[in-house]
Design a protein around this nucleic acid. Structure first.
Lengths: 350, 350
DNA sequence: TTGCCGGATTGGAACGATCCAAAGGTAGTT
DNA sequence: AACTACCTTTGGATCGTTCCAATCCGGCAA
């Protein structure tokens, strides 16, 4: 009874076949659960698989079948909890469907994005989920990705998007509506001088949120001042630094609609440093509802986007596209929901 | 001049070879930058590669070369910023070296960890970086991973680790020393009744931090009370809920060494809810130095672990192991550094 | 005996790259 | 002319799987 377990080399179908006296093809059928094989044969093969510790080689299988079982996830900023939670949702849903996640981080650099996409494509993903870096351009992405592998744009649009690129699916947040809800909420609380704080105006999501803010202000018949629109990088740190821009001039606002939660939390810090108590002396709202929003001090009024659920949704959309490669492209807009917490106080009673 | 670009099918080496009248082998040499090929031939081939939009098929190449260019990253909790930053560091370093990251999230479930590892292994990663789920057992992991592909344990040990598993490399944080530093710092500030708050005592990192705390207390000749050791899940939410455990009995502590930053931030919230001001009425320290620690209110005294740098380091360690598969296994302990901020105030002058 | 049927199994050609030994071509030497 | 040396190029086998057409075999009808 020799054991025939190969040493220093992977166990292959041939080893299993030789080990139990059937052909490679039969073992392959067993692996894929084909009903063709005889019960006894199947049992014998399965024992042998266990005995030799066989590991399926998906790369080899995919080579022949010319299908793929991985999906690339390319993110601009994984350190942002919004994207981290999104990634977790994506991985969960993909894993459940038997796909594996190829991760790539671009650090908000369009150049790195090009490189990362190129490198991931060499591994032949079945599809791509991309949250573009700032200034990432549609024709650049098209040049490296091509038309063969389906792409889902998440969260942001690409620069220079033209009708010819409409073949890409999109999953976006309802930015404009969300920002309008936040602004209307502050107005309902009695605020009149409301700022829009943070983000870069050349990102599509920021433009949309700004539009929602302006729309609500206009509808309510409220004036807006140019210096109430403060740009900054969408990070806590930069937001804290830029806080002073709100208070350096006449006609100081009593509230701010922030680009996202990170910015709002940074603004809170900046307010504290100026001796202002957020949620008492100054009202503010965020966007995203990351986990820390509820636990801030004070808890942050924000727009819930359910990032992990969005991740699962993104995964579903891509897999759906794989089923129907030729169907018309889908533009999905995920709803957002206002979550009122303590940061959106009424204005101080002068 | 017909163009010969295949439609509806991937471009392969054969297409390029046929397109410019050389053999498949020559094209392959060009792709790998071999010095053997003639300059003119190389130029001709490179033009054709661009013209047909060739994408390298790494899976096919790896099949023949029996090497791999991906590395699996398996994490217990990506939503925790500590791991998200770690992941970014890993991906950055791997990407720079031409590897691609296969992501897997286990959500702190040992069962999912088994499944995820199994699925990732089918894609033939060259190595694995694993931050184990709670209660993940060494022999289970060994059963699915085998001895063929090198594994780096990060952050936690596995349950039931025996000498025979010593072949796995490890990258751990200097938990005991770090907790001792934090405790000594609080003692130096004048505290005598110091609690150890958060974490589960059956996780190795928690045990080590607890040991550092006890060591510092003992060395300083300070007594510890059993009810000063409060267990909770390492999340903000659970920490906030368990806050009362510190105050329900006699001999209330004036400070707490927290298991990690998430727990510390949760405890801050809990304190606030009781009307206590963290950093004024009660001192506390964290562990990890996640981005939000510096921006908390008050800013959190903590131990800097530089998660992104740890990620890069983990990637380096795995790649180093790939170079020298037979070298003795490495146990690396990354130093941590006390960062003093405002949360570690002196005790209130009773 | 022959033919046929259905279930179970199989050999060999793919998939897209790499490796290797061998060959083609040019130039220089004897 | 024959030989060597060097620089390029090449065909065919190979990696581990899947696909397909072909085969095998026991039984049953003609």
């Amino acid at each position: 009874m020799s054991s025939h377990i190969p040493i220093g080399r992977k166990v292959t179908l041939n080893d299993i076949a030789a080990g139990c006296g059937v052909s490679r093809a039969t073992v392959s059928l067993v692996l894929r659960g084909s009903p063709l094989v005889n019960k006894l044969t199947r049992a014998r093969v399965e024992d042998e698989l266990r005995r030799q510790g066989y590991v399926y080689n998906r790369a080899a299988a995919n080579l022949r079948r010319s299908t793929s079982s991985s999906i690339a996830l390319v993110l601009n900023d994984l350190a942002n909890p919004f994207f981290a939670e999104f990634a977790e949702g994506v991985d969960e849903a993909l894993g459940a469907a038997g796909f594996v996640t190829l991760l790539g981080c671009t650090g908000e650099s369009a150049a790195r994005e090009q490189a990362v996409l190129g490198s991931l494509l060499e591994h032949g993903p079945a599809g791509i989920i991309l949250s573009p870096a700032e200034h990432s351009e549609a024709h650049q992405v098209l040049a490296v990705v091509g038309r063969r592998v389906p792409l889902l744009l998440f969260n942001r649009e690409l620069d220079g998007t033209l009708p010819e690129f409409a073949h890409w699916d999109q999953l976006m947040l309802d930015n404009q509506h969300g920002a309008r809800l936040a602004t209307e909420h502050l107005i309902a609380r009695g605020h009149q001088r409301i700022a829009f704080f943070g983000g870069h105006h050349d990102s599509s999501s920021c433009r949309q949120r700004l539009a929602g803010y302006l729309e609500a202000m206009r509808t309510a018949g409220l004036r807006t001042e140019p210096h109430w629109q403060v740009e900054c990088a969408p990070t806590r740190l930069d937001a804290a630094h830029r806080t002073s821009a709100l208070f350096d001039t006449m006609n100081v606002p009593t509230a701010a609609v922030c680009y996202n939660d990170a910015v709002a939390l940074g603004l809170m810090l900046g307010l504290n440093q100026r001796g202002l108590r957020p949620g008492q002396d100054f009202a503010l709202t965020g966007f995203d509802d990351i986990a820390e929003a509820a636990l801030g001090m004070p808890p942050l009024t924000t727009l819930s986007t359910a990032p992990q659920e969005r991740g699962r949704q993104a995964a579903q959309l891509v897999m759906q596209r794989l089923q129907q490669p030729l169907a018309a492209s889908q533009q999905t807009i995920a709803p957002v929901q206002l979550v009122v917490r303590e940061s959106s106080c009424p204005p101080p009673a002068n």
